[in-house]
Amino acid sequence: MNTNRRNTLLAIIGLGAAYAGLRFLPDLGRDKLVFEMIDDPLGFRRLTAGESSSGFDPFLGLGGSDADHLADSEIRVRSDICGALYGDLHTDPGIVPVASFSDYFCPYCRVQTRRLAALEARPDSYLRVIWHELPELGEPSILAAKAALAAKRQGAYVAFHQRLMKTSFQATPRYLMALADSIGIDHAKLIADMQGDQVARELETSAALGRILAFVGTPAMVIGRTVIQGEVSDNTLLRIAAMEKEEGWASTCVVA
C-alpha cells in the first residue's frame, strides 16, 4: 500500500514535469528576434536575424522611368509613409497592418501572398494585409501588377493571384477576359482600371516606398513598423505582429 502511494506521488510529479516540459520547452527553441533601427525613415526597424537580404545595394528597378517623376512621388510618399503603406488603416490601434510587396515573376512572392492571406483569414486575427505590387522585372511584370491592382479594386486581389498560380500571365484581351470570368469580376472594369490613373498612382506609391525603405528585391513586407525581407515563419510573423500591437506601432505613424 505504501509503495503504491509513493508510486502515485511519483506519477503525479512526473505528469507535472511533463506538462512543464510541454509548456515551456518550445520557448527554449525560439530564436531571439534581432532588429536594427532605421534612421531614415525614422521610427521603422528592420528584422535582421536569419535574414537573407543584407549585402545588396537597394534595387532601383529595371528600366528607369523619368527622374523628376520619381522624385515627386518620393516626396509625396515621404510626407505620409504610413498612409502610403497602409491607406486608411493606420488610425486603428486595435489592428496590426501588414504591407505586402510582391511581383508576379518572383516564385517566393506567391508563397508570401498565400500565407499572409491565410493568416489574415484566421478568425482571431488582428492582422490586416494591404497588398502592394512592386513590379521590378520588366514589362510583363508591370502588366501583371496592373491587372492584380485592377482586380484588387474589385476585391479580388488574392483570388486573382491564386488563379495565376497555375498559369503564365499573358496580357492579351482574351486571356484577361477568361481570367476575369473565372474569378467572377467585371472584365470591362478590369481593363479600364488597368489603364486608369489610380492603378498607375498606386504603382508609383509602392515603388517610392520600395526605394525609401531600401528593398533589395521582392518579396518584402512591413508589419507595423518592422521591415522584413526574405523568408520568415508564420510563428515569427505572428510574434512580430504581437510585439507591434503591444508596443503600439501606430506611434511611429503619428511621428511621421
Binding site: S52, S53, L62, D103, P107, Y108, E231
Partner: peptide, 14 residues
C-alpha cells in the same frame, strides 16, 4: 547584363 537571381528573395541584377 540583366538577370534575375532568386532564393526566398528575388533580386534582379543589372
Amino acid at each position: 547584363v540583366n538577370l534575375l537571381t532568386c532564393s526566398t528573395l528575388c533580386v534582379p541584377q543589372e
